[in-house]
Design a protein around this nucleic acid. Structure first.
Lengths: 191, 191
DNA sequence: TTCATTTAATACTATCCAGTACAGAATGAA
DNA sequence: TTCATTCTGTACTGGATAGTATTAAATGAA
């Protein structure tokens, strides 16, 4: 009963994610996003609202993707150390070499001073909390496998710190083997 | 023989650093910097050139400050582990609580996609290289104190990763005690 | 076919901001 | 005092860009 949409919103969100990721929130222009996605600005506004709302949608999708994958990997059977090593190792292609240069969309947004907006900050904080919670739960579950005095909560946080550091330093172009070596060294803390 | 400058360039660089740090390169407007420093735009341009040149000056000063302090701390006598722990601990006030919310100017700039400019990237890379080199040299010097198989180069890099992670996560407001606990746990790798 | 409704495309507005032209003020030298 | 020189302040220009008004097009229902 009305004119149908001529584009797939998911496609546009994917294009938008690439532009936001590459340029950052500020420097990403809506003109660039509309040009790359092939739709016109009024369509973009009708479908997603203004720039910051669009960005929140993109960021949500990004977070959901990573969290979903983390849940799957960390739910696998086996020693916590090996499962977590596998999870961290999965990031190596994304935090080394040419592909790593763009870093992590979430971290890039968190360090962007222009994004003081409460919604973005809350979004990122919740994402980090959830990720850390997954690690903590896995470490607690396997507590018996570790030395006396092992602190699963602290260790989960340390892993988050290392993960964040790796994704941040990726901007300057990291070597995959070195990244893997750091992961392996940190995994020795899980003993 | 000519009209003298009515402002101290160092004061202006300090004001500019605050604005760049708080807002990010893009979002920091020269109008804000001139307003906060009390000088007019033509004076700013005459003294420092355009926005990106000014930013490079600010970034250089920032890096020099941190490197100078790292050199002093790491040159102290004593076991490498304790000296490095002291160095990392020195960052705690800057990566926790309200003061930590702004993160690290260098990291914030590195994750800003709009700053693909070669000069900024080179600047940051050199800073990171120098910092890591200081750690590596100290660990190599104390090599004898560590277990067989200890890898000073890898460990220096791991410490850089942890340092970067802590300064990045500071944006979401970290607890000083937890930061200290992470540092202490990571220092157990130096054995 | 006709109409109500939603989408699409063009073109516009308003705003913000980096960078500058220009005129006036402050200094030391002659 | 006079002049050359450098700095300062106001006010401007040009360009980029977020967001929108308006008109045309596409659809299903009556």
């Amino acid at each position: 009963m009305a004119r149908p949409r001529s584009f797939d919103p998911d496609d546009v969100l994917e294009v938008a994610r690439e532009v936001f990721w590459r340029k950052g929130y500020q420097a990403a222009s809506l003109d660039e996003i509309t040009a790359a996605s092939g739709i016109a600005k009024p369509s973009l506004y009708a479908a997603f609202g203004d720039k910051s709302t669009l960005f929140l949608r993109v960021l949500d999708r990004y977070h959901d993707g990573i969290l979903g994958w983390a849940e799957r990997v960390l739910a696998q059977p086996g020693p916590a150390r090996e499962v977590i090593r596998q999870w961290l190792t999965g990031f190596v292609p994304y935090c080394s070499g040419a592909k790593g240069l763009r870093g992590c969309l979430s971290i890039n947004s968190a360090t962007d001073g222009s994004l003081d907006q409460t919604k973005v900050r809350n979004n990122i904080e919740r994402y980090n909390r959830r990720l850390e919670e997954l690690l903590r739960a896995r470490l607690r579950a396997d507590r018996a496998q570790f030395k006396k005095g092992f602190d699963p909560d602290l260790t989960a946080h340390t892993i988050m710190v290392v993960h964040t550091g790796l994704m941040t330093l990726a901007h300057q172009g990291s070597d995959a083997k070195q990244v893997q070596a750091v992961i392996d060294q940190v995994m020795t803390l899980l003993a």
